[in-house]
Amino acid sequence: MENKNNKVQKIIDFLSNYLQGKEKPLRLALIAFFSRGHLLIEDLPGLGKTTLAIGIAKSLGLTFGRIQCTSDLLPTDITGLSIYNKTTGEFEFHPGPIFNNIVLCDEINRATPKTQSALLEAMGEKQVTIEGKTYKLPRLFSIIATQNPVEQFGTFPLPESQLDRFMMKISIGYPSNEAEREILKIGSKREELYYIEPIMTKEDAEEIQISIEKDVYVSEKVLDYIMAIINKTRRNGYITAGLSTRGALTLMTTAKTNAYFHGRNFVIPEDIKELIEFTVPHRVIFKEEYESLDKREIIKSLIEEIPTPA
């Protein structure tokens, strides 16, 4: 446990060299990945989303695929398609970019609903169906989707049901002054990222995922605490639709991973609290009059009303 945990820390330390000032998003992205979940990054362009995705993929020895969403993007552009091979006289399946371990899906809100739902199936079922044939996606599979909050024209905002499929919604934010200065001085290190040696193998990563699932203990008290949080989101004056059961599961799995990252094999309430602003706000629907408020702050204040087990 200790040993593997060190590896996680190593990845964070190592990638920090390339992603100056993005330790927090990096950590969150890794939590989402090791929790077998998907990540939605809502941010302005040019803040290093792609770098982050590539960094994770490369350092873990994983394959990386990229989808640039536009309104004319077709579902088959994502999933791949069968092409007739003249020499064999058969249709051959050419897998799309989704058949990678880490898939960066840029500006997801610009894709048409049809394409979005193709992506949705892939995210939820970890498989794609093309021409009646079902193809399994790799066991290690995580989508990092981005969306641009500013441009509203010609976009198709993700419906709530789809947002719920993302384990966490984060934003990277501007780097700190020193970090940005450093970037200007040395230049972007993205190029180098393509050539780095992986710190762990695919198998290691998988092992960690399994270890988190099996070895991290969630006590009755913490379950009670999670139940209290769920009930709080369902019964209060700000929210019309509270957390789904999938949301509740997310709270637990992300907490487990967070505990693992902290070197523990049991969950404490802080593991949940730390992530609450990334796991909850995009899953719940606020009443119209509160739409304009900072949703993260509302959720945080709700959590502050729930006593911890100890």
Binding site: I268, P269, E270, K273, I303, E304, E305, I306, P307, T308, A310
Partner: peptide, 9 residues
Amino acid sequence: KRASQGLEE
């Protein structure tokens, strides 16, 4: 300690 605070917090 506030009731909502975890121990480590």
